[in-house]
Amino acid sequence: MENTRTKTAKSEEALLEELRDILLREDRQSLSEVEAYITNPERFSKRVLPIIEEQLEFFKKHFPDEYRKVVDRQIEARLSTFKDDMIGHLSPVMGKMIRKYVAHQFQILKEKIDNTVKSTFTFNSVKRKVKSTFSGVDERELLLVELDNTVIEEAYVIQRDSGLLLGKASREETLDQDVIAGMLTAIKAFVEDAFKRESEDLEMIQYGTYKIFIQDYHSYYIAIALQGSLSASEKEKIMTLSLNFAERELRTLNKFTEETIKHISSKLHKYFIQKK
């Protein structure tokens, strides 16, 4: 009894092995082939080298593209973690304004990096070089002119809650500015309400090339209406101007009367409208 049972067991095992062999023969074969390749360096490199060479050829051809993609990605990743860190440290202390300012600074930084990565080959920079050699103007001066494509049309200080004007200045006589201030506040309220983004305020309203740039402060906001194109660095210029204005001219004001409105208006004119 015992004996027959082990016998059957043995033959079963053999049968199973046979079955495995039939089913897995091909796999086993290719596996041993691969093994042979890997263990024999000469055969291996013969097989792989063409692939590497092909890749290298491709990479040489597309190197600037590929390289830029990688660098861009890395810069972006690095910047964003650094940015988050920095904001994390700063924001409880200095609040939303700093947060925005820092975020904005990084945007400019990124723009600058993008530009330096690109600039060597861009058509514009070549054009600029050609233009400067022909006209004999320093290249940097031309860059400055390019940055000055904006004209500030109007500047407002508006009470945040009510939308009432606390000061106004404009290049030309416009429609009722009180009404513009009110509508602006209504649009702002509408947008902020519609998107339910309490932490972020509406920063810019744009119609074609006409832009209204908005900066929120505690109880008021400053709105600057511009005509023309606006890069991040120009936006930064205006933001600094508006920050300076708020700090120097508005900080000590806590009551708004007809007199303060007149005072703020004339200061607004000096800062934003008057040609230097």
Binding site: R160, D161, S162, G163, L164, A186, A189, F190, D193
Partner: peptide, 9 residues
Amino acid sequence: VPNSYFLGA
């Protein structure tokens, strides 16, 4: 009505 419309009224 959005609350913000009433602010400062």
